[in-house]
Nucleic acid binder design. Structure first.
Lengths: 226, 226
DNA sequence: AATTGCCTGTCAGTTGCTTGTCAGGGATAA
DNA sequence: TTATCCCTGACAAGCAACTGACAGGCAATT
């Protein structure tokens, strides 16, 4: 995931930057409002984390400007104050969520991911996912590779659904544990590895082109088309 | 079932989203009225859950717009106030039901399902259902597999009718209890299992291709054609 | 009233699958 | 080489589903 962080305080920026990178997210930092607006225009971000107190302009303005220009990238506001009016005003000018400093990094992460997940829902979501000749029908709870039906257990299906939701993207073990098992911290287990192996045995049967890819040191992904 | 959720408050949206997905419903979220109208036009939703307080326009307008355009998808309104006038006005502009915040998720689910069930009754419905060589005549209350007539009890028939109403779709025990027994919550019984077994004994007699399928962890379904 | 037959729902024993842990061996990067 | 990181076969515990047996209830019949 690609995050634009608009924050002028180096300490805070650095803290968030590191944390997000550790989760395999791409981060770009802008240290002023105008820089933030310019970068946002490139349209390559999945989410914008926006501090309200900026040197050149107020966060509200950044927010407003982007929305006026038709940019619907989800925005998470960071406010140092916890005055209700700020939050309300922020939401009015087009922010999607807010977080009050000081905040817990895990909460920031959770909100960011929730925002992105939600924004992806905007695209009316087909109940059929497809990667190469691998097809997952969420409604019928059915998986096929080419014409061959594949029987998966509940956990296997959940993992595959997660991977297929963003083909080509790398999912860390932590992330998978998070989404499929609901664990918020790493319980020092290798279940994910085990389940990936089981999925491989069912999906990447010998003779087929392997789809389930290991990215050493980072996690797993499904090969994107091509 | 496919639900369009028009709700701008992220927390509420997320709450409902998760809950419905847990019930295997497809959910698409719109966070503004205009977005909701656009998505509704795709016509792929069974029901619309509509918050009244939206950033760009009032829920009434959304409702009115859709009805004027001839869209009859059932609409469930969510209102933060419990003023009677709001409800009345909502129903006047074409909503089918309302629910006052804060609400119980189970109640929301029940209403949604009730709405959909009702709207499906309007769709002209054949009195003969067929899956493979299995035929159910609702008028004559007769069931045949190929040329062999099958005698079913009332409950067996009700379950079979439910399953045949959407071949290939998975019905959870809870859903079956709901539709056939009218239970609104799980009374910790295994009647459904028992009746499925009885149905199997009558329908999937040895030598025939089994039609009644168990999806472990989810429920039961009739094999779709093919 | 009593009898009979069927429908219905509960229960408990069994079976088979799913799940998560672990340890040993392979693969890969430095 | 060495240190990680990853893969995978084996296994035990726990569950979910299946099914035969049974008891109560209802309705038709005697």
């Amino acid at each position: 995931m690609n995050v634009l962080l608009v924050e002028d305080e180096p300490r805070v920026a650095d803290f968030i930057d590191r944390g997000l990178r550790a989760e395999n997210h791409g981060v770009t930092v802008a240290s002023s409002g105008s820089e933030g607006v310019d970068l946002a225009k490139t349209g390559e971000f999945d989410v914008i984390v926006l501090d309200l107190m900026l040197p050149d302009m107020h966060g509200y303005e950044v927010c407003q400007k982007l929305r006026q220009e038709g940019d619907h990238t989800p925005i998470l506001m960071l406010t140092a104050m916890d005055a209700l009016e700020d939050k309300i005003k922020g939401l009015k000018v087009g922010a999607d969520d807010y977080l009050t400093k000081p905040f817990d990094f895990d909460e920031l992460l959770a909100r960011i991911e929730a925002l992105v997940r939600r924004s992806h829902h905007f695209a009316p979501q087909s109940h059929v996912l497809q990667v190469g000749d691998l097809v997952l029908d969420r409604e019928l709870l059915e998986v096929r590779r080419g014409d061959d039906p594949i029987k998966l257990t509940a956990k296997e299906l959940a993992i595959l659904e997660l991977l297929m939701s963003a083909p080509g993207r790398v999912f860390s073990r932590t992330r998978i544990l998070n989404q499929v098992w609901g664990y918020s911290e790493d319980p020092l287990t290798n279940v994910v590895d085990v389940y990936i192996a089981r999925l491989r045995r069912k999906i990447d049967t010998p003779g087929r082109e392997p789809l389930l890819d290991t990215v050493r040191g980072h996690g797993y992904r499904l090969k994107a088309a091509g």
